[in-house]
């Protein structure tokens, strides 16, 4: 088990939807539930905006694990949840090609009061990072075909 100091070296990015994960995180905060301080939470309106290469870029650049916390089948935007899942499975393919551990990217349905599931996701991601360590950079570059950045 790594110390908290070491844990801080590896970074977990949480992309949390305003209708799901972000509120789950808020609820954890309101309950003063301690978790490791290597978790960076960004609010997103919906996670459907992220193309697969976004996740790859984020892993290449700065973070060692990403958890997309959305509201799953309770997503208020029709079709967005299914689309997010599709984009993430495409990202898995790209990770596989690059030899990245696919467990570094997770999609998780977190409700507005899901404190325990939220904490569990964070704990599991940290356990994983204890096991596999931070990403060794630089990561093989994104191929032409996959890169959409103009």
């Amino acid at each position: 088990m790594k110390t908290d100091k070491e844990k801080v070296k590896s970074k977990i990015l949480i992309l949390a939807t305003l209708s799901g994960g972000y509120l789950g995180a808020d609820s954890a905060g309101q309950g003063n539930k301690e978790y490791a301080p290597n978790v960076y939470i960004f609010s997103v309106m919906t996670a459907a905006i992220f193309p697969p290469e976004f996740y790859i870029r984020a892993l290449e650049k700065s973070v060692d694990a990403i958890i997309v916390m959305y509201s799953g089948s309770d997503c208020p935007y029709k079709g967005a949840a299914e689309h997010t899942a599709k984009m993430i499975s495409q990202a898995y393919e790209m990770m596989k090609e690059r030899g990245m551990d696919q467990r570094r990217l997770r999609l998780s349905a977190i409700c507005t009061v899901c404190v325990d599931p939220f904490l569990e996701e964070v704990a599991q991601a940290n356990e994983l990072l204890d096991e596999i360590g931070p990403i060794e950079r630089p990561v093989p570059a994104v191929t032409e075909a996959e890169s959409v950045t103009a």
Binding site: T46, A47, A48, I49, M87, V148
Partner: peptide, 18 residues
């Protein structure tokens, strides 16, 4: 448009954003 963002991730030219 309700800003669901599906269009953003499928655009091959990154020409659309919320």
């Amino acid at each position: 448009c309700n800003g669901c963002g599906v269009c953003v991730s499928v655009c091959p030219n990154r020409a659309i954003n919320i």
